[in-house]
Design a protein around this nucleic acid. Structure first.
Lengths: 105, 105
DNA sequence: GGAAAAGTTCACTAATTAGTTAACTTTAAA
DNA sequence: TTTAAAGTTAACTAATTAGTGAACTTTTCC
């Protein structure tokens, strides 16, 4: 009996990737890629925020170093901006004194 | 004597990074970061071209898959475009069926 | 060498980011 | 609990990319 419950429960377990395949389509499709872009934008924002905090900078300080304003930094960190590569480089190099690496898997 | 020549020659050997420090300023400065962005844009174009060719696609085919035109693909591959992240994702995901990874070093 | 395919460049418009100010909300420290 | 600092959001303009057609150049291959 316990086993049966376990089995039923197991049927409902779905991998994240399969969930995404079903909800947004397979990788490489337009809808899936749109979803991926949005989540990557969000994750990148979090990453930038984390690194800024590690570097002990406020958004205002980060903005000053990169020649912009704190309101814009906030937008980026909150995943509300589809930024250009030059902007990303500026934030990482001038703002954090770090380097960005791009890899295609 | 041979040694002396070698010494003189050695004095003229300069590391690439030091050359860049001198010519464009240290990492994190505005001028250096502008240079870095330009070279990264160029390198990324090469990388995309290489991967497209590996995938046996023409620029026109790549354009079709990503919903744009071959003229635009050409511009990007030749480092003439400071593209948005969404554009980069589109090229890599819809065009190449691959995944992009961003890392901060 | 000639033709077809592939790639590049130019010129232009539409769409979107970058940049900014100001008001508002949240957080942290006294 | 008050206050100042930090962060968020909205609204707007200016600057730049995204998108496109067409002409031109280079490469490929018969």
């Amino acid at each position: 009996m316990k086993k049966e419950v376990a089995k039923k429960a197991k049927d409902k377990v779905v991998s994240w990737d399969k969930h995404l395949d079903k909800k947004y389509g397979l990788r490489g499709t337009v809808t899936r890629s749109e979803f991926e872009t949005k989540s990557q934008t969000f994750i990148l924002g979090e990453l930038l925020k984390e690194e800024r905090e590690k570097a002990n900078l406020t958004q205002a300080e980060m903005a000053e170093k990169t020649g912009t304003k704190k309101s814009y930094i906030s937008r980026i960190e909150n995943g509300r901006a589809d930024i250009q590569l030059s902007t990303l480089y500026r934030l990482i190099e001038q703002g954090l004194n770090r380097k960005l690496e791009l890899t295609i898997h």
